[in-house]
Amino acid sequence: MSNTHTHDNFTRCQQLLGQLNEYADGELAIDLCHELELHLTDCTDCKIVFDTLTKTIKLYHLLDENPEAIPAGVEERLLRRLNLVSS
């Protein structure tokens, strides 16, 4: 698997990269969406960038929805600060 962009028109790919953000958010104008989607079917590397960018966003939402337990002592100090510890 290549680690460098192989598409012939790399400058075009860079221009479209700037639109991926709005596209991922569903905020890109329809005509530009169509143009970008055509490009994604044609350019494997850009398709991978879009797919992995989307996966990045989804993974962070997954992380955010599943907070870790807070470290030992943090909750206890909070309860004490609020005068809620009886012992």
């Binding site: 698997m1 962009h5 590397d45 991978i48 960038v49 797919d51 992995t52």
Partner: peptide, 9 residues
């Protein structure tokens, strides 16, 4: 900021 790693996940 430009993508360097172009492997699928």
């Amino acid at each position: 900021d430009l993508p360097q790693n172009l492997q699928a996940w």
